[in-house]
Design a protein around this nucleic acid. Structure first.
Lengths: 191, 191
DNA sequence: GAGGCTAGCGGATTACAATCCGCTTGGCAA
DNA sequence: TTGCCAAGCGGATTGTAATCCGCTAGCCTC
């Protein structure tokens, strides 16, 4: 009922939902702020409506970046198809996960605070990400490049460090370092 | 002028500082809340005074847990004295860093949101922690247990996952797993 | 010990977030 | 097509955070 994948009975509801998303996207791109009141005015709806559609700022931000999150998840099979599993994993971390994190204003912040309320990640973004990590793990274990027994949750925790990359610094390099560190930790054989 | 290590000119200032810390500690231990108004009333000072001493909730929480943070940092040489460097590192992560994180209400939350404002970590807590990690790294590199070239910042990012441990779950085990994963990633030799 | 000076106080005030409920209006049945 | 029903709306209202400035009182000089 909140994050927008459902299609509610009434047409105006859908319309409002869309309007709010547009306004929020504009606000995020512009100032990086997500003031519900401001967004409501901008979208031409009441504040209550905004809150009804998105109970928390995190939910709103994640909805705005839903496309991006979905892309991160869906690109996994593609990468696995094009590259050997070990390379796919690295590419995924640096060019997709880190990339969107650094590129989309407020995404990293939102995730950081969203996950503050343990497991209450709005939508199914968290499960989706876990699934993606799981796929990467599986493929690598099957290929013999990663030792078995690692859980997606554990690896996700390791990747959590990506949230603290500096968008104004050399985050690409830093992400690669972290991926490298974790890779060594996961690897089946030394190297 | 904020985090309490300084000793301001006026006596009442010091007194207020102390009072606020006591009230905040009580509030944290009790409800886990850090409402500035409530703390001001409880401490018998004006809200303005609280804000003057601690500009953000994070600053206040970190000040309350300053002792703990200091302990985490100071225990490093002790551990290095008592144990071989590799064991010292693991013990440190699980029994000290993770331990305080899970044990002190709101510490992990505070750190998570505090670090949201990149590098604006109040006080010198961040530098202290970096130093501690650096010491651990050095000792291990010297002992040949960890490959050289790793930066404290990188390792800290890896440890960042500790912030998402579940205080109500088996965090001790999870912390050990993460330490293990990172350890493999840092290790000089396979195993 | 008295007086001046300013650091620091306190809480009234302002700004903002979030809720809640009476009203509107789209959807559906007859 | 009309009328009924409730899903959904909007913004007045309430609660809380954060600021700001006139005043108090600690410190230092003489």
């Amino acid at each position: 009922m909140t994050t927008g994948s459902v299609s509610p009975r009434r047409a105006d509801t859908r319309r409002n939902h869309e309007r709010i998303l547009v306004a929020a996207a504009a606000s995020l791109a512009d100032t990086g702020e997500v003031s519900f009141n401001a967004i409501a005015k901008q979208a031409g709806v009441g504040v209550g409506t905004v809150y009804r559609h998105f109970p928390t700022p995190e939910a709103l931000i994640l909805a705005v970046y839903r496309r991006e999150v979905r892309h991160i998840v869906e690109v996994v099979p593609v990468l696995l198809g094009k590259h050997p599993p070990d390379k796919a994993l690295r590419l995924w971390v640096t060019d997709h996960v880190a990339h969107y994190m650094m590129t989309k204003k407020g995404l990293a912040d939102a995730l950081r605070t969203a996950t503050a309320f343990r497991g209450e990640l709005p939508g199914d973004a968290y499960e989706d990400m876990l699934g993606a990590v799981g796929k990467m793990l599986e493929a690598n274990v099957a290929a013999g490049t990663v030792r078995p027994g690692l859980t997606p949750v554990l690896v996700m925790r390791g990747l959590g460090g990506l949230l603290w990359l500096d968008p104004d610094g050399d985050w690409r390099r830093d992400a690669a370092s972290l991926a490298d560190l974790l890779w060594h930790g996961m690897a089946a054989q030394p190297g």
